[in-house]
């Protein structure tokens, strides 16, 4: 699935990375995402899939495993 939005650092517990999608959903970025993606405020278009079988300490929303991304 494609998600467009803004990358955010979220201070929840020890902290995590998220994409605030333009449609209002907040996705938590799953581990293993490319390091270049993890930059606060970066506007991106991401190709990934939601991992329903994953739980996180931040628990801020659906967990998105990123396959690829493009800066916008």
């Amino acid at each position: 699935m494609m998600v467009t939005g803004t990358v955010k650092r979220v201070a929840m517990g020890t902290g995590t990375w998220a994409i605030e999608a333009d449609n209002g959903t907040t996705y938590e970025i799953y581990r293993g995402a490319p390091p270049e993606l993890l930059e606060d405020g970066l506007k991106v278009e991401v190709n990934g899939s939601v991992r329903d079988d994953v739980m996180t300490l931040a628990a801020i929303g659906p967990v998105l495993e990123v396959q690829s991304f493009e800066k916008r």
Binding site: G13, T14, T16, Y30, D52, V54, M55, T56, L57
Partner: peptide, 30 residues
């Protein structure tokens, strides 16, 4: 900060089998 449901489920059973009285799960998913 992420983990799989299968590991968490196993950990819950491990706790129950090894004498835990209380389990804390500071984690979540949808």
């Amino acid at each position: 900060g992420g983990g799989t449901v299968s590991d968490i489920a196993e950990a819950i059973k491990f706790a129950a089998d090894n004498g835990a009285d209380v389990i804390n799960l500071s984690l979540g998913g949808s």
